[in-house]
Computed example of a mutant assay.
Amino acid sequence: MTTIAKPFDSGSAYDTVVIGGGVMGCSTALHLARAGMKVALVERGSLCREASGVNAGTLTLHMTRAALIPYAMRAWQMWMDAEKWLGMSVLATQAPGLTLAFTKDECELLTLRAQARREKGAPIEIISSERARQIEPGLHPSLLMAGYCEIDGYASAYLTGRAMTHALRSADVKIFENRQVQSIDSGDSGHVVHFAETKEPLRARRIVLAGGVWIENMLAMLGVHIPIKVLINQLIITERIRPVMRSVLSVANGLLSLKQFANGTVLIGGGWQGDGNRDQGGIEARPQNLVGNMRLAAYAIPALAEARVARIWLGLEAETADAMPIIGDVPGVSNAYVVGSAHSGYTSGPFMGRIMAQHILDQTPDLPIFNPARLLGMQMPVA
């Protein structure tokens, strides 16, 4: 698939324009700028306020796909070192990580998943229920076994945008917030990005699409069709309660993520779905899913029965047809790149941006990228 080269010769105001100001887009722009490129970053809202700013902020290997463990481990260290490379804290906190198994089937699933992740380098071990309760005394007594990982923790998704903005400005990246991209003209001499508002277009030699769930729409502007699935994840935050847990928890069936912050609030997630779509975003929570998520949380940690819900919200997550990231050259379009759609994308985001920048800079990425061309002609599996 190719695009028709348009004979404009506008010159390139920027070496690279990155479209999409989430963690991956910001990290890509930052690493390119620090390598000497003149970079512009475009975001339709505020930086890191879409999926990157409303997710659970969990930095866990338990819920990361096995093939992405090496990426997540490098990104985990980047989050822990955020003050060094961003110049500002995101309150990254290391905490023990436990995945819980309450049934025989969950024990089998936990054992298989832990083994697959260990083979990719994750320091996950299977421990007895007794040892798990030594780490987390508040666990339900019916626990049979658990997976334990010391490389776990969380960061403040809310503070991510502030830290990224600080770093990008320090690197002289030109930030354009509240700019909705309407179309992109691509030709041999570069790219021109047009906006829905009456704004001057941006011109650049290279373009990077980092729009999360909107990558499908962005690629369509270049004449490329790659389907991207949209997940509408529900999240719950409680009022402050006494300390009832000190680890990051999940359940082997994948339906729970759970942690308590220093201020006493508890964040409950696990991918339970709400209603929404790519165009309208999150529309409405599903009450039955909220109840199911909270009941599972209160079963894992019985003391959570005393917690009251303070707020619920919806976050969008992108997924490709093979559930692996899309990082590399846009098929058939010169000097166009795409990065995104990584499972547990917040966890791996900083490192995904780094290897995208390394590829653009003709450096050998620290780990292999994920060629977008493999997804041409694929269809999303039927749920």
Rank of each mutant, 00 (worst) to 15 (best):
A297C: 06
G190Q: 12
M378Y: 04
A297T: 03
P350I: 09
A75G: 08
E106D: 07
D172M: 07
A210Y: 02
W313C: 07
V224A: 07
M63N: 03
D188P: 03
K84L: 13
R113C: 12
V248H: 00
L47I: 14
T111M: 09
Q182N: 13
I4G: 06
Y158E: 15
T160P: 02
R203D: 11
E197R: 05
H191K: 10
A33S: 15
N263D: 15
Q77Y: 00
G57N: 00
Y14W: 11
T64K: 00
R133S: 14
P350T: 13
R179W: 05
M37E: 12
A155T: 13
A305M: 11
A196F: 09
G349D: 08
S189N: 14
E119M: 14
I326L: 13
R205S: 14
M145R: 08
A114P: 00
G223L: 00
L112N: 13
G271H: 05
P243H: 06
K104L: 14
L68A: 11
N293V: 06
S183A: 14
E239I: 02
W272R: 01
Y346E: 00
L100V: 12
V244R: 04
D279F: 07
D152A: 13
T58P: 00
H343Y: 06
E50N: 11
L30T: 11
V230M: 13
